[in-house]
């Protein structure tokens, strides 16, 4: 895969620029999110870049779950921070997450219908 290293270089370069901008300007946005915006700007400027990064980006996004495993393992070791509140916290997390998804999906569908776009 000869596009792998250039793709990694580009992704890391965008992230680095994002980190520099976030820190330099004291923005409350994580560097990688600014890097994402920069990457979109690059794709706008050079649409041909999309084909070059597709293979490597595809592998990364297909295995996004892998990147959360180290943090997930950290949770097991830190479960004691939940202490006496663990049951209440689990109930709250579940109910609040379900409510947020219901609210977001209902709003999305409602506004889509309101502005009359075709469902996609």
């Amino acid at each position: 895969m000869k596009t792998m290293l250039p793709t990694l270089g580009l992704l890391l370069g965008c992230q680095l620029c994002g980190e520099v901008a976030a820190r330099g300007l004291g923005l409350p946005i994580p560097g990688p999110v600014l890097g994402l915006v920069l990457m979109i700007a690059i794709l706008r400027t050079w649409p041909a870049a999309a084909a070059q990064i597709r293979a490597t980006v595809g592998v990364i996004l297909a295995n996004l779950s892998l990147m959360f495993v180290p943090a997930g393992v950290g949770v097991i070791g830190n479960l004691d921070v939940l202490a006496d509140d663990w049951f209440a916290l689990l109930v709250i997390l579940t109910v609040s997450t379900l409510l947020a998804m219901c609210a977001a999906v209902t709003t999305f569908i409602g506004v889509s219908k309101l502005i009359g776009g075709p469902p996609e």
Partner: peptide
């Protein structure tokens, strides 16, 4: 692996 979260976030630009 944890480190790859950063470039993976940037990679979301493609989709």
């Amino acid at each position: 692996i944890h480190f790859l979260l950063g470039p993976a976030t940037v990679a979301l630009a493609l989709p």
